[in-house]
Design a protein around this nucleic acid. Structure first.
Lengths: 200, 200
DNA sequence: GTCTATAAATGGATAGAC
DNA sequence: GTCTATCCATTTATAGAC
């Protein structure tokens, strides 16, 4: 006789709730950094209460670790391979770090959470597991690991200046000029160590 | 008869107290970032109580602004001029960002405070007033402002990876190899725009 | 010029009801 | 499976005594 109560959105669905929290966490940590966001904010954006974060993830720190893993897993850093690696990656990077771009991404999460020592450890491990490995595969020759992390450093620096701080010269620079220089930077880092000679 | 009380260290000396607070603030903000440090910590390190920070600086934010100005004022980013700019700056940078180095500096302050939006604004303005100007003076030719900020980006990226996160490949890389690549990066950015052609 | 004491808000995490 | 209510620590900033 009595009809079943209309099932609310995501009600009584542990997996969906967990996923909603995780999605909200990635966004919030990317926008405001580890210390800049509270579990209440994340829970609210996920449509649940703060308590469930501890229920499903144990603590804010564990939630952050999972969020970092999700954010760093996709192969977004490098586009293109071989001779087109430098130019294509540079153009993608310049477009994504444009002041008016709304795109989020692992570099923003990284920069905005780096101040917290625990968060820094978690991200260092995630880089070793994901981004560092991806990049090292693309590169070859002597010093590939070092050059891969130098590419990450260049990218992080550009994200910092253009999107986090918003300095004027980089904001106003013509994208094609900027892309030209960034391409040259990546070309330098694409050279194996034995071929590289400064000021030839 | 009653002898004067022995004058305590810094007691009743407004200028010295103010300076002690400012010094402690630079150190603390560099080590832990804007959100990672409380006014109590700073006051304690300065040998006073937290109340005096508001008395002398008005608020934590104003104290931060003055600390940033102090930290960014010295011309530490670039060493050497002309043809030796790239190599000398690279070697200094590699030495300062060595994992075992204890040196603090404006880049650590910048990276660890970037997550806070107000702090980011304050630092963007300070860069325009100090570091950006210094660098633009050293450089010449087309796109000097853009290339100067790209140099800052490269430096910030290396500080982030080596000193803040401590990623393995950059930590273990031989300093001379690392300096060689960083030198080449700076050489690229030392070229005026019209001379620069990727993959010549 | 500097202190103690406290206000007022916010943080992460938990207990227990339903 | 999810909620409300609460604990406890910590934050910036201020009031008022000395």
């Amino acid at each position: 006789m009595s009809s079943e109560p209309a099932p609310d959105r995501r009600r009584r669905d542990a997996a969906a709730t967990r996923q909603a929290i995780l999605d909200a966490a990635v966004t919030a940590f990317t926008r405001h950094g580890y210390d800049g966001v509270g579990v209440r904010d994340i829970a609210h954006n996920a449509g649940v209460t703060a308590m469930l974060i501890n229920r499903y993830f144990g603590s804010k720190e564990h939630l952050f670790a999972e969020a970092v893993d999700v954010a760093f897993a996709p192969r977004t850093v490098i586009t293109g391979t071989g001779t087109e690696l430098a130019g294509q990656t540079a153009r993608t990077l310049v477009a994504r770090t444009a002041p008016e771009a709304e795109e989020l991404g692992p570099f923003l999460l990284m920069l905005r959470s780096a101040a917290n020592p625990r968060a820094a450890e978690i991200m260092r491990d995630a880089i070793a597991r994901h981004a560092g490995r991806h990049l090292s595969e693309e590169l070859s020759g002597a010093g590939a690991g070092m050059r891969a992390e130098l590419m990450l450093a260049v990218q992080a620096g550009l994200w910092l200046m253009r999107r986090v701080l918003g300095t004027t010269a980089l904001a106003e620079a013509p994208p094609e000029d900027l892309a030209r220089y960034v391409t040259m930077l990546f070309q330098v880092l694409d050279m194996p160590a034995k071929d590289a000679t400064p000021r030839g």
